[in-house]
């Protein structure tokens, strides 16, 4: 079990879950997170820039992600210079959320005996 698994007893919001999921693959710029969330959710979740940064700010405050310079001395014009990466607490929270969702699905299957439509 990851060390920070118990840090997020509350359900994650959908944007927060997908952002953490995106960062689980590695550090990314804000724009890359935006595109990746759309891709990983199969086009179902398209974040606005405002929602992206409000959520990134909160996740950062909760210690689930961290923000740092991207290490490039001369970043490409127009590209944001900061990257976001998952912390061990963030990994724990993501894992705890997946566990919670699995438990919900298991309860659904147990009661209705079928896959959700």
């Amino acid at each position: 079990m990851p060390s920070g698994e118990s840090v997020s007893p509350n359900p994650l919001s959908e944007p927060a879950f997908f952002i953490l999921l995106s960062l689980a693959a590695g550090p990314r710029h804000g724009y890359a997170v935006l595109k990746d969330v759309e891709e990983v959710s199969g086009g179902r979740v398209t974040l606005s820039v405002s929602t992206l940064y409000t959520t990134l700010g909160r996740l950062q405050e909760q210690g689930l992600i961290e923000r740092s310079d991207d290490g490039q001395e001369d970043p490409a014009p127009g590209l944001p210079r900061k990257v976001y990466r998952l912390t061990s607490h963030g990994q724990g929270a993501l894992s705890a959320e997946a566990k919670r969702l699995r438990a919900l699905l298991a309860a659904y299957r147990q009661r209705l005996g079928e896959e959700p439509a």
Partner: peptide
């Protein structure tokens, strides 16, 4: 903290 970055991301979008 974020305005410059948000503006850059919005411009790209």
């Amino acid at each position: 903290e974020y305005a410059q970055e948000m503006q850059a991301v919005f411009n790209l979008k």
